[in-house]
């Protein structure tokens, strides 16, 4: 179909495609500009970052901490998401609003709130410090801050995944003799797995990108976003950009691999 025919038949869709592309272009240009400048124009800076143990340690720490935060979000968020998707109960609207609160509040505010609670003299921090777990300037502090900001991404995706499973499938399973556990394990979970994985990936990616909430509670050990900020304040773009590009490339590679792994398969 020629362009003019397309415009005549679907004027609204063509307009929407043009307008929507602007936003996509904005994202692509911002990232591509930085990656292109670094990879093509200054590859030596990128290689230096790859060889820098501080950078590698920082990126590794970021991914590891975010993975831990995601595992906690999955463990605690899956039951919550299922309840929100399947049942009506008093206070459900409030619970749904609470899930989204970390998304809407400024992350510096989240950081201060977390610091007040988890610092050594905070209500939770003091209790845990007796057990030998310290949040201030520690890996646990990073995990807690990441969990706070990233959990909503998993819970919302999981809730929508569970909602997408027809509750009558669960009823049929029950009528066939499966208890609630078996039904969840053999019907609900496999059918919503793609949403759960997708939510976990989003949650993990969100954790990796967190900076605002982390620096209040755990400036050290330095996660990648903190290191990038630190190097930017000391060395400007030259010092921070290679780390940023390396982080982007690594995240993109993992993100794409997971997307490929969880894509729909034919015949089902």
């Amino acid at each position: 179909m020629r362009g003019l025919d397309l415009l005549r038949r679907y004027p609204l869709s063509v307009l929407f495609a043009a307008v929507g592309s602007l936003l996509l272009l904005f994202t692509v240009v911002v990232l591509f500009n930085m990656v292109f400048r670094q990879v093509v124009l200054r590859p030596e800076g990128l290689l230096e970052a790859v060889r820098d143990p501080t950078v590698i340690r920082s990126i590794g720490l970021t991914m590891y901490a975010s993975l831990m935060a995601t595992l906690i979000a999955v463990s605690l968020g899956t039951p919550l998401a299922y309840l929100l998707a399947r049942h009506r109960f008093p206070g459900k609207s409030l619970a749904e609003a609470l899930v989204d609160v970390p998304v809407v509040i400024p992350h510096s505010v989240a950081g201060i709130a977390l610091y007040a609670l988890f610092m050594r003299h905070g209500a939770v921090g003091r209790a845990f410090s007796r057990l030998g777990v310290v949040f201030e300037d520690s890996l646990w502090g990073v995990v807690v801050a990441m969990l706070f900001v990233s959990a909503p991404f998993y819970i919302n995706a999981a809730r929508e995944g569970f909602r997408g499973v027809d509750p009558r499938l669960e009823r049929v399973a029950r009528s066939l003799g499966a208890g609630q556990w078996t039904t969840f394990y053999r019907v609900t979970l496999p059918l919503s797995l793609r949403s759960l994985i997708s939510g976990a990936v989003m949650s993990w990616a969100r954790g990796i990108s967190e900076f605002g909430a982390i620096i209040f509670l755990a400036y050290y050990p330095m996660v990648a976003p903190t290191l990038i900020y630190y190097r930017f304040t000391i060395h400007g773009l030259t010092g921070s950009q290679p780390v940023a590009v390396l982080l982007i490339l690594l995240c993109l590679a993992i993100f794409l691999a997971l997307r490929l792994y969880t894509r729909p398969r034919r015949g089902r």
Partner: peptide
Amino acid sequence: APPEERGIGFVYQDYLLFPH
């Protein structure tokens, strides 16, 4: 009694086979 204890076979209008 919960559904799994009733010994009932249920067939819905739209079949609802387990797609996976």
